[in-house]
Simulated scan of single mutants.
Amino acid sequence: MTLAPPPTAPTRSRAALWALTATHAANDFYTGAVAALLPYFVLHAHYSYAAIAGITLAATALSSIAQPCFGFLSDRYGMRWMSLAGLLVAGAGVSLSGMISGSYIAVWLVIALSGIGVAAYHPAATVEAREAGGGTSKAMSLFSVGGNVGVALAPPAVFLVVGWFGLAGTGLLIIPALGLGALYAVVSWRDLFGSHHTDVTTTSTPTPTLPDDWRAFGWLTAVLATWSVAYVGTSTFISLYSIERFDSTPGQAAVALSLFPAAGAIGTLSGGWLADRLGRLRIVRAGYLAAAFSTLAIVLAPSALLVTVATAVLGVSLFIPFAAQITLSHSYLPNRIGVASGVTLGLTLSLGGLVSPLLGQLADRTNLQSVFAVIVTLLGVGYAMSFTLKERQA
């Protein structure tokens, strides 16, 4: 089974790319909503740090297995409808979580269901975005920034619904999935359900000129593992860090959590543009180095305000390499674009989620400052390993 590098996107493809960007915002809104709900589970449902890290694990553990599987299915059978179905499942799980917060097991299960939905969305949608955008880092950064926007919008949305209606108000969070899912279904009905996508093995596309380089992809995966822990660890604990260390209110602490992905949107767009002009590897290495220093600033910050500023800088730094890492994965596995997307995007949540309970236990035994000290170290390791990566065109 092979996939060819996509052609330059025509007008209709650009419209599809923007529609996909909107659904990416809606899908990753639910990732951000899980993180934004954690302080409320601590304050109102009295969950421990280890327990709320377990919720993060629920959102990501099955996803770590499912995303490459969904990627394989995308490569083998097309199944573009998975992007829409995944979005709806992701929304349903999060919207139910606050309504059943009295039962930790029930919350864990519906958040796990939401994670499966996120896993189903990403590979199919990323393949579509690659085709619509011509395979450039700039186009991929536009699609990726939709995720940043969605995550950034989640904390204020959660603050509003929980503030007005309590945890039971999370039922209203299904609205982005229903609204943008319906819009995308109208715009891309034929792409989602047309017969020409039922089995992509029957298409007559030229074979990529390069074989899959699994060794290079393995090194990229190792680098991404450190990125994943930094991203998920920051999303999970940054609000609680401000509350624990500086006695911030949940509303004040949510500012840093919202700025993190919002700044990440700037990093994603600028990183994609710079990667096409300066080279992907330079951008990846610069991003990891800057992220390590900005996380160190969080550890040493003397006030909640400086934590917020440092978190914004971290958001920019951490997402500068994002689009370049995705297109690198595609160049390493040109014959397995769906699998490459599933592993690459899955790692942004999954491996970090698997480690988050350990970070939660560390926080329970020491403090949250120790968690961010660990993240500094891991980002330094990621920077060092990035020098094992090589450029490749496919």
Rank of each mutant, 00 (worst) to 15 (best):
T249G: 12
L269K: 06
L88T: 05
L368E: 05
V371I: 11
Q361L: 13
D28E: 04
L160V: 15
M385C: 04
G218P: 12
Q361D: 10
T344C: 14
T56V: 14
V339C: 03
S235H: 08
G86M: 11
G133F: 05
L345P: 07
G54K: 01
S356Y: 04
G91H: 02
L210Y: 06
R215P: 06
I52T: 08
L224K: 12
G179W: 10
L173S: 00
A58F: 07
G54P: 02
E128S: 14
N367V: 07
S317D: 13
L180K: 03
A340G: 13
I116A: 04
R336P: 05
S137W: 00
P39Q: 11
A185H: 08
A53V: 05
Y104P: 07
V110Q: 08
G150A: 07
G169S: 09
T205D: 12
S13R: 13
Y30M: 02
T234P: 11
A216T: 05
L305W: 13
P123N: 11
A51M: 13
L314H: 09
T249R: 11
A25C: 08
L274K: 03
V355K: 04
D191H: 14
G315M: 09
G353F: 06
F322A: 06
A185L: 14
G279K: 10
D212N: 15
A124M: 14
S63M: 14
T249E: 08
L178W: 00
S242F: 09
S74P: 03
V307D: 10
I298S: 02
A125E: 07
F237V: 06
V187P: 00
G353T: 13
V161Q: 01
R285T: 02
L142N: 04
F143D: 04
Q369H: 13
F72R: 14
A157C: 09
A182K: 11
L274E: 10
V343Q: 09
D276C: 09
A340M: 11
T377I: 14
L345V: 10
I111S: 04
T295Q: 11
V162K: 00
I100P: 01
W227K: 08
T221F: 11
G133H: 01
S242E: 15
G264R: 01
G93C: 05
G382L: 07
L57K: 03
G271K: 06
L73T: 10
A286Y: 11
Y121C: 00
P206H: 01
T21F: 08
L305V: 15
A297Y: 10
V374T: 07
F72L: 15
A33R: 00
V284L: 08
G181Y: 02
M79R: 13
A182Q: 07
V145T: 13
H122Y: 06
D75W: 10
